[in-house]
Each structure stands twice: as structure tokens, then as C-alpha cells.
Design a protein around this nucleic acid. Structure first.
Lengths: 216, 216, 216, 216
DNA sequence: AATGAATGAGATTTCATTCAT
DNA sequence: GATGAATGAAATCTCATTCAT
């Protein structure tokens, strides 16, 4: 939602001080995450970015537009490369996802977008576009490759499975279960019990009691 | 954390206007859901409840305490009865869960609690205790009964599976996929592909989204 | 400024709970001294007195009337007896005065009455009547006895001298000079240099450099 | 404790509206005197100064800081010049002191600082530094000059005498004796009976109140 | 363009007082 | 009479936004 020239490197007119743009957006994203939308004040953003409040308003008309612009700078973390081992690939992506959310305070950011959905649906939409959907796509791609390659029993509903894998993190976070190091592997094992004979993936503790591998 | 009457010497003094308590809490919960914590103002709560702001402060010292008290009024929806058919029971609970969240704007409430977690961790804790964990417990109970009864292939990691089932809703909501009437069935089908001999559900019939043949 | 029957011991009607009256006034006076008029809240008075706010309003219509009633309970400390030694008697009274003011936080109470004079002149008037004038009278009486007895050179302007003696405490307090143990003696010595040959009053350090006792 | 401009990179930004500073402080001092600290509201200060409340907060973070800043604007009235006539000089300063206190409502201001001493000791400290101690110093200087010049019998305890002279005003104010035009002369006469050979002032003429023959 | 000043519109909280039992 | 409940009217402080240089 920037108000003017995107290519601010152009020499026409008075060029805006380069770098200020990015500093403001970075500060806004940080504070949006740490404090939430309503507690993120322009004063704090300005102070953190080393500019004045008026400089912010010069670029974005309202606080809401600034928040949206900050969200739009979210770049989907480069997903780990696929190895062909479905479970390992899924676990790798899940692990990366969990780590990213934990490290950056991403759950608070998600919370902000959810909480503001009625007032400012753009926030959730931007989060979806820039963070949520890429994660889904990464998982679905792994599952589709598996099906295409035929190396493993293909899962018929990749979309639902991807939601369940990612969603398990949300649910565990809400339930207060966080930070378990083997979390990703366990979730993958729980949800993909039959997709592979899995000679390559050593069983984990979670698989113990009625651990039948059959039927698949 | 309602304030206890100080003296408590029996019933001296003007009795509390009955219903005011509940009206305030209901108004607070509604506004907390619709507006989020910071936008929920005591002025609005008072107006919606038909009381004065001071009356609110008489019972709860701070806005935070009021919000917590409102959250504590959340009652875990009575989970549907179990029938013994694992998939059907899980789908019924999931369906109820999705409906409740959709109807009451629960995702916004969850968002608020997540967004406020750093400032006011009580909110998320109360939400967890009153809404999240009961839902998990309901699903786990169904899965445990299944294992105990031996009627179906028991799932080895009921906790993870429950998280995945509930989490699928969160993930789908964030991804913008909401309101699909067959959602619960599809998720159950996707995650419990092998738990049942499934003579009644042909493998491939159940596999493609949109072609579910109902609860077993 | 009590609203009703003074003699609350009378058996006519419903007698007011005896002792509550005094407890309220004592609490009010304490808080008036410690917090000042505007910071003394009825809530705090009620709590300190162990009664409810409404009970206070039953006896005094307004907070101002309560404060006035509390001030009216001030009893002039029984002034020390006179010995006939003017300087010693004056110093004894001054010393008692300084001690009382220091011990009870009296300067804050005086400040409150002064600060409220425009809004509530009664407070200063009551303070004057119950605390200030009796102190003056005590000093003047000593000075008058001295003149009458002829034992010492009579001071022609007892009123001014009394004001100066008492005022020296106020001035020293404002100047930040407080708590000097020999304060009363020094002030008396400084102001009554010529009224007596003073064989009975040993000279203090303050009298040193040009210590002429003559001319009197 | 005015807030220093943050960046202070020269003269960037909109310059401060000149005079607003002084208007706020003047309004604050007036209201502090007339209403006391707790009744002096920022709303009233803002209205009286013709600014918005936020403008006040831009310069002073809290009401207390504003009050302190207002007190710090007190300038010790330029004390009258000394003539060499001790009694006349003292009386002139005392007269000026009494007039200033009477004219400006200074006793109410002193009362406020005393009443707030426990909560906000800065107020009394600032009053002391800016108003009380300069007055003391002026009197002590006169007394010291007298001693040095040897023109009059020096008083051995200038500090106590100065306190007594100034304090006589406080005491008389509290006692309800105010506004007497010959007050200063009478007090000087009462306290300095022996410091001068006094050929011009017959002992008994000066002794009865109301019969002073002027400055010397 | 960039900045600091200025402000209107609240938000939370407090308090003297009145009400109903 | 005594009490706890209830309230209207502030008071302090904050913040997104606009203004003047």
C-alpha cells in the first residue's frame, strides 16, 4: 500500500532516503509480532526505525496500511530440499516450520491477524498469502512427488494431510505442548502410518504399543 | 478473579443486582471476541451490559481481570456422545468443534489470546483450560475407547492424532478454507485411513475429496 | 458539624453504635495529616475506622464536614507548667511544640489547612482555634507572668514575641533545618537576649561570639 | 524537568510555538497556588494556557514534573537594597516578604508544598531553594553586614533571628493576624530591642503595639 | 523529504455520594 | 442504623494523525 513510486531509486523528484523504508517496515513487523497490532504504536515504530512519526505517515496513510505493508514483507522461508524420502522430507519441513514460528514469535503474529480479522481482514489475507499458503504448498508438493514417483503409497488427500501436519503445531501450541525436539518426526509418524513400509525410517518410541505396520 | 465481598458478614447491605454479573461477563466475552482485548473498552462493556463502569470495577479491579473472568465462563461444549464407531464419533466431535468456532467467532478469540500471550499470559491459559484441553480430551477419549474395545485398529499416538484433527481446522481456517460442510468427515478419512478393516468404505471411494459416502 | 444528637448515649431512638464516631474521626484526622485533604479518601477513612462509607455519610453530609469535625477533635496539648523561669518556661513550651509537630506530622496538617484555605476556610479556622491560638496563649501567658512578677525585664510586645518564637519553627522547617535537639533553647536565647541577666540559664554555643548580655 | 528534544539535530522540525512554554508554567503556578496540587488539573492548566493537554505532556511527562517546573520558575524577589540602617533594612525586607506572600497567595502555595511533602518532596525542596532560602539569606546578609560594620550591636545568632523574623509572618498568618500595615516594623522592633543604642527611639514609645515611629 | 510540535479523541481508573435492603 | 451496591463525573495519560518549518 505504498503511496508513491515503487522504484524509489529513480532519480526523478526528490528521492526518498533509501533504507528508511526498510527500517520502518522491519521495525513495524517486529513490533507487530511482539506487541500485537493495537499495542504497536507509531511512536515505538518510529523510535525503533530511527525516524519520525511524520516520516511514516509520508509513506503510509494509516497505521493499518503500515501493518499491511510490514506483513507483505514476509518471505516464505526457503523450504528444505526434498530428498525423495517422504517422511523425512515432511518432517524436515515441519521441523523448519515449528522452529521458525517458535523463533520469531510467529504465533503472536498469527494471533494478531486472527484477532484483527473483522476490523482489518487484509492482515490475515496477507499472512495467508505470504506465509501460510507457501507452507501448505511445500508439504503438498512433497506428497504429490511421492504419489507421482510411486515410491510410496500415495496419500489420496494431500491437502487435508498438509493441514493436519501444520495444524498439529497450532493445536499443540494452544494446548501448551511446545518445544519437544522430536515433535516433527512424531507427528509425521502418527499421520502417515500406512503410507510406507518404512524400512528406512527407524521407529520411534511413539510407535510402540500396537505397532502394526501392515495393511499398506 | 472476582472480588470477594469484604466483610462477608452474612447478607448485610444492598444485595447485588442479580444478573448484572452475568450481563457484564457476557458483554465482555462478546466484545473480547468481536473486538479483541485492546479494542474491548470498559465503556463498551458497561454500555452493552447496562451498567456503569464503576460497577465493573467494583467486581474486577482491572480490565485484564475482567477479560480473564469472561474467559473463565467458557464452558466446554458438551461433546457428542460416543457411539462406538470411531470415525463417526471423531467426525461428530470435529464437526461440533468447527461449528462452535465458526458460529461464535472463536478464531478471533483464539487470536486475541495468542496476540496477548506476552502481555497477559493468563488469557491463553484460561482459554487452554476451558476450551482447548477439553476438546483434546474428548478426542483422545474416543481413540482410547477404540483401542480398549479392540473394535478397530487402535492408533498408537492418540495425542498427536487429536492435535492433528483439531489442528486441521486451524490450518484450514488460516488457509482460507472454511465452511465446507463435509469438512469433518474428510479430515477423519484422511487421517484414519488404516484404523479400520473398512469393509464398508472402499479405499478409493473415500480417497478423493468430495466423494465421501458418509459416516461409514 | 455533626448532624444529630450529640449525646449519643441517650436511650431515645436507636442509639448509634458508640465508639464508631470516635473511630471515624480518629481515622480521618490521621489520614488528613498523612495524605492531605484531597488525597484522604472516604474509602480509606472507612477502612481505617472499620465502618462503611455510608456510615460516615450518615453522620457528616460531606467530606469537608468530616474533615472539619476531625480537626475539631484536636486538643491543645497540655502545656508544660510554668516554673517562673521565663526562658526555661518558654523553651519548654517551644520544645513541646516542636516535638508535637514533628511527631504527629503536624506540618503536613498545617499545610493542608493552608492549601485548602480558599476552598474550605473552616479548616484553617478550626486549626487556628484548636491548635494555633492555644499555643500562642501559652507563650503569652508566660511572658505576661514575667512582666507581672517583675522578676525579669518585661517584654513590651508579648504577642509579637510569641509569634516569632513559634514562627521560628515554621521557618526552620521550611528551610530544611529540623530535628536539632537544642533548637528551643537556642531560639529563646536568640530572641530574649536582654530580658534577663540570666545567671540561671547556662549559655549555649550559639551565644558565643559577641555575647554581650548587657543593656537590660 | 523539561523534556529535552530528542534528536536535537539542530533546528529540524516545526519550531515550538514561543510563549506556550511560559503560558503553561504560569498557568500551572497560578492554579497550584489557587487550588493546590491535587485540585490543579491538567485540563484547567491546558485551558488557562490555551494549549491542549497533550502539549503539556509533550514537555513534562507527569503532572508532578509540571508542578515542579512551575515552582522552579519562582524567582526570589529582588530584595530591597540595604541602607546600613539595620532595622530599616530588615523591616523593608520583611515588608516586601509579607507583601509578596499576601499578594500572590503564597501561603496557599507553601501549604500545598507542605501538604504534599510526603508524596512529592520535590515540591517543598524547590520552594525551599527558590523562595525560602533566598529570603533567609537576604536577612542574614543584613545582619552580617551590621556586625561587620560595627555600626550596631551585632546579633550573635543571625540564622535564628532570620527564622524568627520570617516565621513571625507564618505564625501571625496562622493566628489570623494579617494585613496590619505596620507589621514589619513592629516585629523588627520586638526582636531587636537591644541591638542599637537607639537614641532616636525612646524605649517605651516603641514598646506598645501601634505606636511605632517609623523606620528608625 | 524530513522533522518536531500540536492536538482531538479516547482509555483506564478513582471517588464522593446516593440507593436499596 | 448500618451496610454493600451502584453510579456520574472527573483526572491522568496515550495515540494516531495533522501542521509548520
Amino acid at each position: 500500500m505504498e503511496t508513491t513510486r515503487k522504484g524509489c531509486r529513480g532519480t526523478a523528484g526528490r528521492p526518498r532516503c533509501p533504507g528508511k523504508e526498510a527500517a520502518i517496515l522491519a521495525a513495524a513487523l517486529t513490533l507487530l509480532t511482539q506487541q500485537g497490532f493495537t499495542r504497536m504504536t507509531l511512536d515505538n515504530v518510529a523510535r525503533a526505525a530511527g525516524v519520525s512519526k511524520a516520516t511514516i505517515h509520508l509513506r503510509w496513510k494509516t497505521k493499518t496500511e503500515l501493518a499491511a505493508a510490514a506483513l507483505a514483507t514476509l518471505r516464505p522461508c526457503s523450504t528444505p530440499h526434498t530428498t525423495g524420502d517422504v517422511r523425512a522430507d515432511l518432517a524436515a519441513q515441519l521441523s523448519d516450520f515449528a522452529a521458525a514460528l517458535t523463533r520469531t514469535g510467529g504465533m503472536a503474529l498469527i494471533g494478531t491477524c486472527l484477532a484483527e480479522e473483522k476490523h482489518t481482514p487484509e492482515l490475515l489475507e496477507l499472512l495467508r498469502e505470504h506465509a501460510v499458503l507457501p507452507r501448505h504448498a511445500g508439504l503438498v508438493q512433497v506428497l504429490d512427488q511421492a504419489r507421482a514417483g510411486g515410491t510410496v503409497a500415495a496419500h489420496p488427500d494431500a491437502e487435508s494431510l498438509a493441514s493436519a501436519l501444520l495444524g498439529a503445531f497450532y493445536a499443540d501450541y494452544l494446548a501448551g505442548r511446545t518445544g519437544d525436539p522430536g515433535w516433527a518426526d512424531r507427528v509425521v509418524a502418527a499421520l502417515l502410518r500406512d503410507t510406507e513400509p518404512a524400512p528406512r525410517v527407524p521407529r520411534h518410541a511413539a510407535s510402540s504399543p500396537g505397532s502394526r505396520t501392515g495393511r499398506g
